[in-house]
Design a protein around this nucleic acid. Sequence first.
DNA 1: ATAATATACTAACGAATGTTAGCGATGTTT
DNA 2: AAACATCGCTAACATTCGTTAGTATATTAT
Lengths: 197, 197
Amino acid sequence: MARIKTENNLTRKEVIVAKAATLFREKGFKAASMRDLAEAVGVEAASLYNHIKSKTEILHELCFSVANRFVHKIDEVEAENTNAVNKIEKLLRFHINEMLHHYEEVYVSDREWKHLSDPYLSNFQNQRRIYRKRFAAIIETGINEHQIKSIDAPTAVLIMLHAISGIESWHRSTQKITAEELEENMISILVGGLVNR
Amino acid sequence: MARIKTENNLTRKEVIVAKAATLFREKGFKAASMRDLAEAVGVEAASLYNHIKSKTEILHELCFSVANRFVHKIDEVEAENTNAVNKIEKLLRFHINEMLHHYEEVYVSDREWKHLSDPYLSNFQNQRRIYRKRFAAIIETGINEHQIKSIDAPTAVLIMLHAISGIESWHRSTQKITAEELEENMISILVGGLVNR
DNA sequence: ATAATATACTAACGAATGTTAGCGATGTTT
DNA sequence: AAACATCGCTAACATTCGTTAGTATATTAT
């Protein structure tokens, strides 16, 4: 009877959720079975239920831990005393680094939230909608102050956010530029596409 | 015994595939069941098999019909006698319009291709990889001719393609700007992010 | 050492899945 | 009208799914 190995002060639940993130990213939430997850963790499927309530609970944990980090960040950025373009750049760099260093979680949260069930589903969608509105509001400010060219702010937001989710492809590619280079390239293209010249 | 209704010269198979595209987009390939699809088509699940070989075959049809359209387009654009920025703009506009007018198919092809099985899977991945290389090559040309700023071309490609997939959110949003406005906004931001000033 | 708790196991469940077989009804061609 | 192909139906199949119950073992606290 081999116990789930815990390292770095992680609870067994956290180990399971972390392995699940990898699995959900690779196969998708629906296609990844609890038996798959059990094997990845090194245990029988039924044993997982000593640590988690359900498969969906794992998805909750992943989606909301990611969402909360972004909300916390935009709280911080909004409060800063700087111009709109700076704020946007900070948000973008945060998104990029989240995608670089918490790839599995962020990716799963982005692509698999549809499989949440109410009330978590509506909750998540609400948070997402509000986040995007706040992001758009910063862009609007930049437009009004003529730092940013006159574009539709919600459209700009969806371009930015989806563009960053492209880092998925970078992770899988064989000939990678470094993470730093990637970050600078993305900022150059995305911010460059917004600003007035 | 109600037959599958065919309109506009569509075969029954094409009706099934079209309905499947909607369903796969809404629920994901794995979560959408053949019984769901049957209901959407107005028939029993077993009856579908008079027209299609398997659930996976439907996914093949969707993925490759989309992929073929993009390959065909880049063939056309590469052959044109114009500069790199123009070529990129044409490709982007094509992507945007595909996403606007063949939303279901393009979205499914983009997100669900992982569930293809070999040899179709490797085939699809190859086509995708080659397409992106050709796109990157056009960007490289623009960089060498100093129309485009000095960036990593593969990174630029993944930003462009993923940004466009954000049109998904536009489709679902309630207060939409028009399709034409969306197209112009996207082109402005994306091309604006590339060009040298 | 003993008791208590945490964790893993085996076995099994009901439900849902993709798919096949066989039959009858419908539509088309001769 | 007869022959034939097309199409949809019911019934059923083998798997796989998430999850639960009950039990055994390992760890921790007393």
